[in-house]
Design a protein around this nucleic acid. Structure first.
Length: 777
DNA sequence: CAGTGAGCGAGCTTCCGCTTGACTT
């Protein structure tokens, strides 16, 4: 008879804990939630007080069967899921689906995976917190109601297969509004004046750069100032030295790890999570989905020891951080190395780089402040009330800076400040190089994946486990795309006074260039406009925060969950009904102009298949013509002449083997059609200008590739073939594909050989431990 | 993949949050 069954959420955690507990305890994992609302329909019975219709998730059937069997045998079942709303709910769902008797159940919680924490948890069991579970149920039901009533409305009014939700729609809104800000942005310019002063020191002359205390609004004022400088004398008015300090950033949470890995390593959010998962599973770091900056006492001790040993005791400063972020639930520790004395690990390059970042950040967080000395020198100008200011900075004690410096999103803020040479109050200063440079206000940055996560976290929207999936969803729906923006060239003026010569010159700078930023598409912009017009309350930046307040009341036993849902749902559903019946299709139609040839109107809008141009009115007697917008155009920016060009396709460009060769643009991009067969056009060929000879070439290439594709066929069994694919030769059997062993020549395979390979592959399938990453579709 | 766009109507799409698994070559 099994004495104790412990159930946690993650299998890696189960392995670790089992080591702490000894032989009377079997530790298993639930792999997260085991039940969810039915996917078939709404999954909520509104008539019956919003009764949730739960089903065991299809991928958890086996988990539940196994746990059910073990729990029947067990004397005591310890539900050790995370101590947050979702974790409490997982325990409750487990108790329900496993049919556990009340007296068998012990609910335990711990925030850190250390032996002491776990043994102490075992000594302090409690029962499942029903209020907290109902708060989770309210959260779940609300998200389902919003998502499954709004999305179908979009299918009807905008375009099929779209989606909307409490989290993703706000993410899209942020990106759309940032783009609008950029569009509206008008750069202001001002003239910044700097002077290079020469200061003599025992080691020779040193240049000190100083900036004028004010900027000039226009060139004339700047010029007047420089003119005056010809006659001016300069003198040090004051020297002020002040101590300053810098403190390290707190240890990583999911969100800050994603931000730093993006800035310092160029990782996408999903890449960061993938690599972190690998580090976690191999026991190198603690759990990677967390909103907590807390470190266990064990970790604090290890950090102290490591810092003392490597840098000395004066570099140690033990710090306890507290979380400020909205809605944080703090079920885990911060993300940190499992063993602080491991500065390096084995692993691939990505793992090593991410680990290095985590190690440094964690260690730095437990190190002393950096002590600085900041010096400000004010220089008087004899014929002006303005002052020149020179600033210098010296690091007196590097402290945590020895290990780690946090980076910022603001690329312009990296001002370098160095040591200033010794100067005296009243000292005369000399300069023969003063410049007034035109500087522009900085255009707002588009979001990166990571800076979007940061913003969402600030708003309390989404959770550590959903940041990466949310970003992938809004890209999959084609609301936003990740891309580069070219930027533009801009002239700026420099006035310079060198050796009393006043000169004006114009230079060019490139601005607004951005790489791997989130840019809204036409569809994203249109869906956002729809939601803003009819469901402003749902995409409100405070919507999540205000429903979270209600969920907290449920958790505190001050409100009943279905009453909270009722109060939300009825007005919301009325909004859905009103929009359903009260509005026509929402296409974002825009009249571009008139086609000079036919005299018909040209429109751009979103159709069933995405952005398109339309020639002729919808109500006109002649059926209007349609053409899809390629990737190179958007509804916002396309011009009439570009739109008219699109109607020139499909067109016949000539004759090959006595049949027409047609060029068109379809769902999957530009194509050539010949004898009813489609050939995709490479990106390098322009469908509007391609010539027959090139088209024939592409057809020939494709035919050749097709011929090469089949290496072997068998008359006895047409279901099995040896083919040449993107990744080399393979065996196809029905719908399944099989790898050919390295030492086998594919063209020599017999039918029996193939069958053998297929049979063997079937066997190894179950005990294979290889990991594959799901390809993004 | 399949190269559409009216309207009909079938049947499909969809949420957020917790986990890892899967298959491919």
């Amino acid at each position: 008879m099994l004495k104790n069954l412990v159930i946690v959420e993650s299998p890696a955690k189960a392995r670790t804990i089992e080591g702490f507990l000894g032989k009377d305890f079997l530790v298993k994992s639930s792999f997260g939630h085991v039940r969810d609302l039915s996917k078939k329909a709404l999954g909520v019975d509104i008539e019956k007080g919003f009764l949730p219709l739960y089903e065991i998730s299809s991928d958890k059937k086996k988990v539940v069967t196994d746990l059910r069997k073990l729990s029947k045998d067990a004397e005591t079942v310890w539900l050790a899921t995370d101590e947050d709303r979702e974790g409490e709910a997982i325990s409750w769902h487990l108790a329900e689906t496993l049919d556990l008797e009340e007296k068998k159940i012990r609910r335990i919680v711990f925030h850190e995976i250390t032996k002491n924490a776990i043994l102490s948890a075992i000594e302090h069991p409690r029962s499942i917190d029903r209020n907290l579970v109902m708060a989770q149920q309210a959260r779940r039901v609300l998200d389902r109601l919003v998502g499954f009533e709004l999305s179908p409305l979009l299918w009807k009014k905008v375009k099929p297969a779209l989606s909307a939700g409490r989290v993703q729609s706000v993410a899209v809104r942020l990106i759309v509004e940032r783009e609008e800000e950029i569009r509206q942005f008008k750069a202001q310019s001002a003239f910044k004046v700097t002077a290079d002063f020469q200061v003599d020191t025992p080691d020779g002359p040193v240049v000190v750069e100083a900036e004028l205390s004010r900027k000039f609004d226009n060139k004339e004022e700047a010029r007047q100032f420089l003119e005056a400088c010809r006659e001016a004398k300069y003198r040090v008015a004051s020297i002020e030295t002040k101590p300053a300090k810098k403190s390290p950033a707190p240890p990583f949470t999911t969100s800050t790890l994603q931000q730093e890995a993006s800035r310092k390593l160029g990782f996408s959010v999903s890449k960061t999570m993938l690599v972190a998962q690998q580090l976690y599973e191999s026991g190198k770091i603690t759990y990677m989905r967390t909103d907590s900056v807390n470190l266990s006492n064990l970790a604090l001790g290890m950090a102290k020891e490591e810092i003392t040993g490597t840098y000395g005791a004066n570099y140690v400063k033990t710090r306890k951080y507290t979380t400020r972020s909205k809605g944080a639930q703090e079920a885990h520790e911060a993300i940190r190395p499992t063993y602080m004395n491991q500065a390096q690990i084995e692993g691939d390059v990505s793992q090593q780089r991410l680990y290095d970042l985590i190690w440094k950040r964690t260690i730095a967080s437990q190190m002393a402040d950096a002590l600085l000395e900041k010096t400000t020198v004010t220089i008087d100008i004899s014929n002006s009330t303005e002052k020149f200011i020179a600033r210098g900075e010296v690091i007196r004690f590097d402290g945590f800076l020895k290990v780690y410096k946090e980076s910022t999103d603001d690329e312009d803020s990296e001002e370098k400040e160095d040591l200033l040479p010794p100067m005296q109050q009243g000292q005369e200063m000399h300069t023969d190089d003063i410049k007034a440079t035109q500087r522009f206000t900085v255009i707002p940055f588009r979001y990166t994946e990571a800076s979007l996560v940061k913003k969402l976290e600030e708003l309390g929207i989404g959770r550590p486990s959903t940041y990466a999936p949310t970003i992938s969803t809004i890209q999959k729906r084609e609301y936003v795309l990740k891309g580069d923006k070219e930027g533009f060239k801009r002239d700026y003026v420099i006035l310079s006074l060198k050796k009393n010569q006043l000169k004006e010159s114009v230079k060019t700078e490139k601005v607004g260039y951005e790489k791997a930023k989130l840019i809204p598409t036409d569809i994203g912009i249109l869906v956002n406009r729809f939601l803003m017009q009819f469901f402003e309350n749902i995409v409100d930046y405070n919507f999540t925060a205000s429903v979270e307040e209600e969920f907290d009341k449920i958790a505190d036993g001050k409100r009943v969950w279905h009453e909270v849902i009722r109060d939300f749902y009825h007005p919301f559903h009325q909004q859905i009904e009103n929009t359903q019946t009260g509005t026509t299709k929402f296409t974002g139609e825009k009249l571009l102009g008139v086609d000079p040839e036919s005299g018909r109107n040209v429109f751009v809008k979103i159709g069933k298949y995405g952005p398109m141009v339309q020639l002729g009115d919808t109500e006109s007697e002649d059926k209007p013509r349609f053409a899809r917008l390629g990737k190179e155009f958007t509804i916002e920016t396309i011009r009439l002449d570009q739109a008219l060009e699109l109607f020139k396709l499909p067109k016949v460009i000539g004759d090959f083997e006595n049949e027409d060769v047609t060029i068109g643009v379809g769902r999957f991009g530009p194509y050539i059609r010949h004898k009813g067969i489609f050939y995709s056009l490479p990106k390098t060929d322009d469908p509007h200008s391609i010539l027959l000879a090139r088209a024939v070439e592409i057809i020939a290439e494709k035919r050749e590739a097709n011929e090469k594709k089949v290496i072997k066929e068998f008359a006895e069994d047409t279901g099995i073939r040896v083919l040449n694919g993107r990744y080399g030769p393979y065996i196809q059997s029905g719908k399944n594909n099989y790898k050919i062993p390295r030492n086998v020549k594919p063209e020599l395979l017999s039918l029996d050989d193939c069958r053998k390979i297929i049979a063997e592959a079937g066997e190894t399938k179950n005990n294979s431990s290889r990991r594959f990453i799901r390809k993004k579709s």
